[in-house]
Every structure is written in structure tokens, then in C-alpha cells.
Amino acid sequence: MRHEDLYIAGVGSWYPKPVTADEAIEAGLWDEAGRRRTGQVSAAVAGDDDTQPEMAVRAGKLAVRQSGHAESDFGVLMHAAAGFNGLDGWNITSYLQHEILAGHGLSMEVRQQSNGAMVAIELAAAYLAAGTDRTAALITASDRFVLPVWDRWRAYAGLVLGDGASAAVLSRRSGFARVLSVVTRSRPELERAQRADLPFKPYADPHDTDLYPISLIRRMQDYAAASGMGMSGVFRRMNETLVETVNTAAEEAGTRLADVEHLIFPSFGRQMMQQEVLGPLGIDKERTPWQWVAEVGHVGATDQFGALDHLGRAGLLQPGQRVMMTGIGLGFNWTTAVIEILEPPVTVESAL
């Protein structure tokens, strides 16, 4: 869908101190084959005090402060996560709404795995356009991947999982970037690629060694074999939908992929990025914030706004540039947004 009066007024991110690949290998957590395959030099790893909700608050406050919007301007907060929110039987969005927006607006959670924050752009844009008198929406995302549920270094052969949070403020009033188009596509018939033939359970039990630590690659391999399509067939279907999503978003934005200055994708490892993104689209790694990706890792739904914040802080966002952000969520679902930079974002060092 093409947009005429939707802006990104602020972004923020908070990622903890990285653990280097050397440190992980020396500790027996990883191996040289994984490093060669992914090109990962480190991963952001949360400390004991870096909880999922608190990291989201840090990122959200930075985005709100950069946006210049008052708390009372916000009509909705949407939070995305791929994993655990810090506590069962509890609503993280009410916590974020209270801590970041002083209770203003509404709040809700978006569960589209690693595409949650991107698809929230579509949802928030529709909410803001639906006659509400509120002018802004806040999207937050946070994730933390730890044992016994996640082995960040081995959960999927093509990437390393990191921890952290990011956020963005959408505005109907103004911003440093204008949203030109947002497109979402899905292939729900591929949901078994992360389920295989595993049974549904009444509750999560991290001591169940048949399920934990989660091995996404083993589940996909089992599904690919059982379905008869093989891994190549799974990837072909995924690649086709990625290309459709990206090309449609570019067309609706009135631009060409070749004219987009910065391309932001999920923070996959080097080989996986080439196989699932760069190769199908015919683009080079140098057009992505690869160095940042290799230092932080794939942090669930936070990758896109985190990368945009990184580009802004590095002084790489200049007026007239176009930026494309694409999310890919398990299930599978894809969202691509094309934005035009109107002015360099103001750097905010502290949300306090």
C-alpha cells in the first residue's frame, strides 16, 4: 500500500555488550565452522539485568524523545517479540504503555516472529488513518535468547541470535523520513517448516529434551524431507515471495531497487543472507549494514529499526535517500517498507 502522510519521527535501539566469536569458541559454545559459515564476529548478549521489558523501555524512550512527540500524542503502542516476554501470565504491553507513554493510548502485542515490528507498521498506519485524533504510534520490539530454550550459537546453522531492543515512532504530523509504501505477503502453508511433526503441548517445559534447546534447522530439515520438496523446494518458495514483496513495495513507492541507497534485511549470517536474500534479489552485501549485522546478530523483531537507528547514528542517512526495510517472520510472512529520508535524524544519547 502506498502512503502519502505517514512519517517515521523517531527511532531508538538498545543492544547489550557483545560477546566475540573468539570468546564463544574458546568457551566451547561455538566452532570455527560456524564462524566461517556466518561471518559473525560477535553477538549482543544480555546481562542478568537486561530483561526483555526493560530493554524495550530503553529503546522506546529513545525513539519517543527523538520524535519530539508528547506522550499524549500517542494513540497506540504495538510491541513485537519472537520469544519469551519475561513473565507468563502478564501483559508486557501494559507495562510498556505505562513506562514509556505514561499510560496514554492503547497497547497491544504483535506476534509475527521476526517480522513483528515490520508488520506493525501496516497495523499502526491503519489505526492512525481510522479517524483517531491521536497523531502518533509507537512500535517496540525486544528479544533475548538464552538456554535452556535457545542456544544462540547453534539454533540455526545460518545465523547467530543476539539480544536487544529497538523502537520507532510513526507520525501523521512530520518526521525525518516519509513512509512511501508498505507491503506484506505470507505463505502459511510453510508453517510446518518450524513445526515438522512435533506434537502440541499444554505448556512449555524447557526440560523436554525432545523440544529444547530449539533447533530450527532440524525442524526445517524434517519438514523438507517429509513434504518431498526438499530444502531447495522450501527455499524456492520463500525466495519467490521475498522477491514479490520487495518488487511490489518498490513499484508502489515509485522507485527501483537499484536506486535504493540502504537495504535492511533480517540480520542473517553471510551464507544465509546470500542464499535467502541477496542472491534472489541480485544485490550486493555492501548495500546492507553488514558490519553492524556481524557485530550484533539476529535479534528477532528488532533488526530493522535497530539497523535504521545505526545508520542514523553513523551519519549515513541523508536527505533524498531511499531506504528499504524488509522483515521475514517464521510461518512464513514478509513485510517490506520503502522510506524517503527528509533530513538526518537527531541523535539522542539518553532517554533519561
Rank of each mutant, 00 (worst) to 15 (best):
R2F: 06
I8N: 06
P16C: 04
K17V: 12
P18T: 14
T20N: 13
A24R: 12
A24Q: 11
R36W: 12
G47H: 10
D50N: 11
E54P: 01
S72E: 14
L77P: 02
A82I: 04
Y95D: 09
L96N: 10
E99F: 05
A102F: 01
A120Q: 07
A120I: 08
A129C: 00
L138H: 04
R144I: 05
V146A: 15
L147M: 15
L161I: 11
D163N: 12
G175Q: 12
A177Q: 03
R195P: 04
D197T: 14
P202I: 05
P202E: 05
A204F: 03
T209L: 03
L216E: 12
Q221T: 06
D222C: 01
A225H: 04
G228Q: 02
G228H: 02
N239V: 07
V246I: 09
G254A: 03
G254Y: 04
L257Y: 01
E261I: 01
H262C: 08
L263Q: 10
S267N: 13
G269D: 01
R270I: 02
Q271S: 13
M272Y: 06
Q274Y: 04
Q274H: 10
Q275L: 09
G279V: 06
P280D: 03
G282K: 09
D284P: 11
R287S: 13
W290Y: 15
Q291T: 14
A301L: 04
G312R: 13
M324T: 09
M324P: 04
G329Q: 01
G331N: 11
A337N: 01
P344E: 07
S350K: 13
A351H: 13
L352E: 11
